Computed example of a mutant assay.
Amino acid sequence: MDTQDGEELCFPQLFNISCKKPTTPLSQLLLPYIVVFSMSLLTVILNLLVIIAVSHFRQLHTPTNFLLLSLAVSDFFIGLLLMPANIIRKKVCWFLGQLACLVFTYVSFIITSASVGIMVLISVDRYAAICDPLHYPTRITRERVKLCVCLCWLCSVIYNILLIKDELVQPGQHNSCYGECKILVDYIAGTTDIVLTFIAPVTVIIVLYMRVFVVAVSQARAMRSQVTAVTLQLSVTLTTKKSELKAARTLGVLVLVFLICFCPHYCIFVFGGKVLNSSSATIVIYLYYFNSCLNPLIYAMFYPWFRKAKKEISFKNIFMGNTKQAEDKIFSVTLRELLIYKRNDRDCKLLLSILIKGQGTAF
């Protein structure tokens, strides 16, 4: 059934309350569809590689990598769920019903706030590693990082339930017609959300990384001024510092890219959508989603273990449990690298004894 103006309805049987179908020609929608679904597929594949690599290779079970694993999980769901669903919501009628609309919005809020929390944890991790390296191995442990990650996701789940509690009571109250997916947050809740999930975490991230940058520069200058190490311990200490500085630089790039993609996304909410038109707002949202595709590319550029893992990961070996050969190829490292990775005194003494016996490599 058509309307009096000749426009088709999303639900012709609901003539009085149905939304009108968008009038954008299919030829204009084809290119955005191809771009978004290609980006979605690439995001899913790349982040799945990160998830498999960190999960299955025990040598990658470090506190920092557990944070990257959690970030990869959120990026994976952005590519799998949010990218395709968002373009459907923006470009065509919403045929999935109000419950699916509510779930989609709720999940998108959870992933967004959890990603911000993980970025704060990454900044804290680098701050502890660079500014307090002596206490880092004892304070930043795998168990504590796992607990912090779980609390981050749990807080995000509970917080966003409170944020959309009005929609839970009366779903679809802000929809102007049937076939629209729109969820609005009241002024007080929206202001609180901006402070808690944008202003406060971004401020913490910037302050921590400014401190990391200052300390890293001073440490780099100190290392350049030092005489070439003679003892093994001094050599290992210098190499460890270089490794930590390199990790800080890599994660600094990760955080910077996140802020560049994330800040415009929240400008829509800060200004209530009045500054940007519909097309610009959509571009800003997908800029934030594009960050999920960029993160694994940053790993590929800066992390040798990820480049090697991409070549060696075989789904057949992973699911059959035959990962020993791949691990040997990916993690055949020298004793000095193992000394950097193994931080406690017991492991260092063991590896030093191996060196004294003339065995130059381990694992």
Rank of each mutant, 00 (worst) to 15 (best):
S292M: 08
S292F: 10
S292K: 05
C293A: 13
C293R: 03
L294Q: 12
L294W: 12
N295G: 01
N295K: 11
L297A: 08
I298F: 11
I298E: 09
Y299C: 05
A300W: 15
A300M: 11
A300T: 13
M301A: 10
F302N: 01
Y303D: 09
Y303H: 10
P304N: 11
P304R: 06
P304W: 04
W305H: 10
W305I: 02
W305G: 00
F306R: 01
R307A: 04
A309C: 13
A309M: 08
A309E: 06
K310A: 13
K310L: 11
K311S: 05
K311M: 08
K311C: 08
E312S: 11
S314M: 03
F315N: 01
F315T: 00
F315K: 00
N317A: 10
I318Y: 04
M320H: 08
M320L: 05
M320Y: 00
M320K: 06
G321T: 10
N322Y: 14
T323E: 11
T323D: 10
K324P: 01
Q325L: 11
Q325C: 12
A326Y: 14
E327L: 14
D328Q: 15
D328R: 15
D328T: 11
K329T: 13
K329H: 12
K329N: 14
V333L: 09
V333E: 03
L335P: 10
L335D: 07
L335G: 13
R336F: 02
R336T: 06
R336Y: 05
E337T: 05
E337C: 01
L338R: 03
L338Q: 05
L339F: 04
I340Q: 05
Y341D: 08
K342E: 01
K342G: 00
K342H: 05
R343K: 13
N344P: 09
N344M: 12
D345I: 10
D345A: 14
D345R: 07
D347Y: 07
D347S: 11
C348D: 14
C348F: 14
C348V: 12
K349T: 04
K349N: 04
K349E: 10
L350W: 09
L350E: 08
L351C: 11
L352Q: 13
S353I: 00
I354W: 15
L355P: 00
I356Q: 06
I356W: 01
